[in-house]
Design a protein around this nucleic acid. Sequence first.
DNA 1: AATGAATGAGGGTTCATTCAT
DNA 2: TATGAATGAACCCTCATTCAT
Lengths: 223, 223, 223, 223
Amino acid sequence: MAKVRQKTERRERVLECALKIFAEKGFQDATISEISKAAQVSDATVYEYFKTKEELLFSIPEQITESSIRESEKVLPFLRGAEQKLRALVQSYVTTYERNPEYTALIMLHLKTSRNFLQTKAYEVVQVAARMMLACIREGIETRTFRKDTDPYLVRAMILGTIEHLFTRKHLMGNPPELMSQVDPLVDLILDGIRAKGLPAGTPSPPCCWMMTAPAAEEKKKS
Amino acid sequence: MAKVRQKTERRERVLECALKIFAEKGFQDATISEISKAAQVSDATVYEYFKTKEELLFSIPEQITESSIRESEKVLPFLRGAEQKLRALVQSYVTTYERNPEYTALIMLHLKTSRNFLQTKAYEVVQVAARMMLACIREGIETRTFRKDTDPYLVRAMILGTIEHLFTRKHLMGNPPELMSQVDPLVDLILDGIRAKGLPAGTPSPPCCWMMTAPAAEEKKKS
Amino acid sequence: MAKVRQKTERRERVLECALKIFAEKGFQDATISEISKAAQVSDATVYEYFKTKEELLFSIPEQITESSIRESEKVLPFLRGAEQKLRALVQSYVTTYERNPEYTALIMLHLKTSRNFLQTKAYEVVQVAARMMLACIREGIETRTFRKDTDPYLVRAMILGTIEHLFTRKHLMGNPPELMSQVDPLVDLILDGIRAKGLPAGTPSPPCCWMMTAPAAEEKKKS
Amino acid sequence: MAKVRQKTERRERVLECALKIFAEKGFQDATISEISKAAQVSDATVYEYFKTKEELLFSIPEQITESSIRESEKVLPFLRGAEQKLRALVQSYVTTYERNPEYTALIMLHLKTSRNFLQTKAYEVVQVAARMMLACIREGIETRTFRKDTDPYLVRAMILGTIEHLFTRKHLMGNPPELMSQVDPLVDLILDGIRAKGLPAGTPSPPCCWMMTAPAAEEKKKS
DNA sequence: AATGAATGAGGGTTCATTCAT
DNA sequence: TATGAATGAACCCTCATTCAT
């Protein structure tokens, strides 16, 4: 039925506009009127789709995060070795964020802040991704690729923290302009720090570009 | 005169309460009434001291950040070598944050978010600290302590990002419970990654405790 | 045709649910959605049957009141004497109210309040009943059963007011639990007060139970 | 201080206007804006005085009811005999209501309806008045003035119900125009119905006018 | 200097009602 | 005929900010 299609389209338009506006002004400074006007629907219509303003906010990450995770899960099994996997995961993060700058700003600046967000479905998905990375690091330790005394939590915190820091900087100050080129230096530096000493230090795992084909949010909808 | 003294005391009481409440509920969800009540002054009095709510917010970091910086500047010249200095700086950050958890929460969750904060006097101080770290890394490169191809911006981003990530986690989820013990592993890992290969890898710079005496916000007031 | 039948059924289901919900929450606090959901139809369907929310409200009393009146009109001619008739009328009121508690609550708490209700078809029916009682009292005066100086309006106000008061109390506070047993004491007390003094005071008209067979709203629908 | 005086005046102006408007349009159809405009204050000021719209509503009856009760309590001890007391009480009710028609409308049409009102301080005062009447009737029974089989609850319900019915009618339909003249007929009729038969029926207790001096709400404020 | 009091401006949310399908 | 969907129009309430005392 055409109605259903239209409703879905409107709902997504609302989500898109909400993303843009929340990302730009923050949750509190954005108004429903503003969003509804941008989405060319009435205030009341927004409330047809989302019970409250906060539910609207928390509904934004759902699709995008989930699709991004699914992608990683598909690719990971084909990669050999903890180093390759770790690099792939980092690249996946950065790719997703680079392709969805507004979404990234929302996450970095506004959602991470919110205690309520931690109890969200969307946050669970984030946790899944974080756990994948943890598993990857642990695998490296078990297979003796990484040093025995590596603290996997610290390593993960370093990777995630660095990515977060860089994207936040980029969003607020426009610098650095792109982050893809930072993936390999970052991963190399970390690997150098945690690689078991017995291994030939001069064998860096090759930079990989397979993630280039990972789907961005916009492309997803068409399929 | 006693009056002046009293006014200063009141002003500081307002700042303290504002810090507590802003840190707990965020800028938007905190109200002036709430803060003024906690500080046992009237709403109007708050506006005697600070022109707007935002000015109150931005007035909070001033003293604390500045005092922390001054401390570092005093100690740094006595330390030999980039590695020692870097370690000292990281420890300084962590110490300051650990001693002022509410202030840290405010910075991590709410101020970093705000574009207006970037044009603040308080933010300039933050930048000074960040530049000190950058200078320190560059010194390491120039003195061949660190690899020539080290990207100082990336290294700094890693350090700051990791610290931010860990404190944010701690504040929101209570885990990890303390961060002082993470300083050395973090610095070691970074150093391992950027140390020039010619050097004997087995010579970690000694963990240092000199920063233990750095002033916390609370002690500051008494002096 | 089955369709017509179905439509009538739906309409009545809406009326029933509206009665229940209006009685429970009041006109303003009840929503059309709520009613339509309870009646298992859509909001729009309610508006097919009733032009506005208020029209829905005012449509509720129609059948029930009318049927109750008709009953009284049938029985009254068979009764001899103003006293008997008065008693019968009172019993009729109480019976109707006891059998339709939700309807009663609606009338007592919400409809009596509304000025618009006074211009309703349904209210006319109420007036008819009230006028029957008035006529009855007047008949008693004319036939010298009641004192010459009896104010028929006052007497009616006493009877109706007492009934209203008792039912309101019952609805709001659950006390007294039933009102049928109050009919005779009430009527006796009134009659004692208005009976012409010449008559033997010790000849109370006999309590009557014929009204027991008066139809309740539920039974009406089946016929 | 002048400020305090002014605030009190404003508060009372708000209460008065709220009374008028609530009485006229009902709780739900009245808006805060309307009331604040009538009272020449801002919406926000209304909320300075009363936390919610409902609290405003429930604050209206307080003074007026209480002052009315106090009056009755003063006078009652000077009256001899249950009949006189009962008559006095009825007169007190009617006087209060006649002098405060808007307040009466509010009570009759809107407050009696509300379940929340039953848990109000103001309602407790109403209960006190009702209990005084009950006590009075019981006293009459114990002193053999009234018949042994008199149901005091029924008698009270008759009195209160009649008064309520008459005032409601008056408010909605403008008829009867005044109720003071109904007091004696009402009381006489009731008394005739409950007076113990042994007594000389021809000795009605004298109508009394002492209540004429009872204070109305308006006069109260000046004292 | 300190504050009690007042308010303008605005935002989230609800719901009766309409209309195209 | 029945309804899913959309919305205009309000309203309650909050709060940063001002000002007279």
